[in-house]
Design a protein around this nucleic acid. Structure first.
Lengths: 104, 104
DNA sequence: ATGACAGATAAGCACGTACTTATGTGATTC
DNA sequence: GAATCACATAAGTACGTGCTTATCTGTCAT
């Protein structure tokens, strides 16, 4: 089950930080390390977990590897979330923002 | 940070199963155990984690404790997800379903 | 080819997590 | 008020996770 790997991947704050950084634009593993105090192997391992969860995808570019957000993982979270739509409070501000951004 | 506890809580498949069961309707901890092969203390501990994450809330009813889905946790996930809306593929079926269910 | 560089993998370790059994707490029933 | 029931908490344990250092793989420049 993919959900398992997705939520497990996002359960780690360092991985969420990496993902958030990638969401601002794809970049290679070394560039990703800047600003996040983490060793090279640790970064590599985190990226492997994110990739396994379908949250990130890689693309070899010479001797660099460019990473970017994989929409598939996000779509699966949206799908999971949709199952519980009955419980989403109708007038919460966050939801209104979400709706406005999506409905176009 | 609440996100941390939410994703950590959902990273466990047993807890997701409990949450899913609660989403079908609130019930007490004993009723929740039916169908899920788990000891009473384990269930109690899982419910404590889900409650700490804002995914579930409790209500004492005599010597029973009724548990139900807390919309706040779900709203926070939606909020987190909304940050990455730029990456959501526009025509994925899951997303269309999500949109249809929300936009009313 | 050789050295340098980007990144992955291996192995080991400290700590966290999910479970267990045992016991505690609060509410109900008799 | 004693027994029982629903649930929480305590303590211990097996296993998972995230980190480290060391090493390997692949690509580029010279």
């Amino acid at each position: 089950m993919m959900e398992n790997e997705i939520f497990r991947a996002l359960a780690d704050p360092t991985r969420r930080a990496i993902f958030e950084k990638l969401a601002a634009g794809g970049m290679n593993a070394s560039a990703l390390r800047e600003g996040i105090d983490i060793s090279q192997p640790a970064m590599s391992q985190h990226l492997a977990v994110l990739r396994g969860a379908g949250l990130v995808r890689e693309e070899r570019q010479g001797r660099f590897v460019n990473y970017e957000v994989d929409p598939e993982g996000l779509a699966l979270i949206a799908q999971w979330l949709a199952k519980y739509r009955a419980y989403w409070p109708a007038r919460i501000e966050a939801l209104k923002v979400l709706l406005k951004d999506m409905d176009q």
